[in-house]
Design a protein around this nucleic acid. Sequence first.
DNA 1: GCGTAACCTTACGTACGAGTAGGTATGCTC
DNA 2: GAGCATACCTACTCGTACGTAAGGTTACGC
Lengths: 214, 214
Amino acid sequence: MVTTPAFRRLPRAVREQQMLDAAVRVFSRHGYHGASMDEIAEKAGISKPMVYAYLGTKEELFVACLHREGTRMMEAIAGAAVPDLPADERLWRGLRAFFGFVGAHRDGWAVLYRQARAERAFADELTMMRARIVEVVAGMLDHALRAEGREVAETELEVVAYALVGASESLADWLADHPDADPEKTATRMMNVAWLGAAQLLHGHTWHPGMEGM
Amino acid sequence: MVTTPAFRRLPRAVREQQMLDAAVRVFSRHGYHGASMDEIAEKAGISKPMVYAYLGTKEELFVACLHREGTRMMEAIAGAAVPDLPADERLWRGLRAFFGFVGAHRDGWAVLYRQARAERAFADELTMMRARIVEVVAGMLDHALRAEGREVAETELEVVAYALVGASESLADWLADHPDADPEKTATRMMNVAWLGAAQLLHGHTWHPGMEGM
DNA sequence: GCGTAACCTTACGTACGAGTAGGTATGCTC
DNA sequence: GAGCATACCTACTCGTACGTAAGGTTACGC
């Protein structure tokens, strides 16, 4: 008696994606520690040893999730913020893509990101990803500055870029916690804070202690 | 034979503080889950049942840490940002106090910010604390706006405030990871981004889609 | 049609860490 | 200096979940 098995065998590449899908869902629901490999396997419709065979330990699995989702996000942003455009146009498109992505993956990306920050083991991975974005933003600012004949120390630039990226991350977090919020509007608000502040810097205005009330 | 005991008995209040000190250190080093009650007890120079007797379960212990560090931070900020000063002066003093606190209590900050965010169980506590800060910042902006006869929707204000708070948190995170960085300088940089951007808003300049390159 | 390799499973070892039972010493009060 | 409350300890239970050993099943090459 040959019963057609409910779930056919599938090639490795397909299963891996199913596992990653399940892992992202479970990790984002229960957190890194709260998630169990058993549940991930179950949600992926597969047994636990397969997960270990394909994606390795829990830690490696989480890194794989982080990597896939992070790459997707980077691609979404890179695809939108094409070079050879004015800096503000690029920034705007980049922000819109970023918030669009986060808005579309509320359960996935934002939560995964939050988890990664808490664990020392993933700090490096995270730092590298953020560094790439900060570099891009700093590059935009630098480009715009040079176009106006100004120049700013690299560290200075980096810290400002870091602040802008941080503000975006926080708004992304806020977005993830407010399901009915509009990503587009959020991006506009971020653009207001970022660009108006940056524009001031571009025009040589800086604030320093002792000039309060001016 | 009466050997003087190496560690004398201490009143409850003192031991509780020692336990909290140890807990903050351990939590910030290994994360909420990575930390073990045994290690916390050991670092506090006491045995585990005492921790349970005084501060309760692991979760309650963490909340106690969160509460103490959070209160300290709030007090540091509130003590600096006195009312009845111009908005920018208040913002500057608040920022300086904030970054000063983080610089001096890097462990406490790590617990508050990185660990508490990851765990759903502590999200509420965190959200409330942040909400209080956002409210204060939004109040500053609102005050400054009214002084100039302008008015902005409350939601708008809140999101901008949220972005500024987020940027500060990120820079604080950066500060925590760079032991040789100067809190004062970091505060100045944050002030630049925040206040120059906000000043633009105050003067009625806003950015909106479609005005790129202007 | 048959072997081989890849796919997939059940069932387990094991370690770690939260929380507790029950007992000992110390200092304070009268 | 007896009694009592409080500080404190050693040594244990027990659940949970990571990671694995060893064996069954399907597809595919030849």
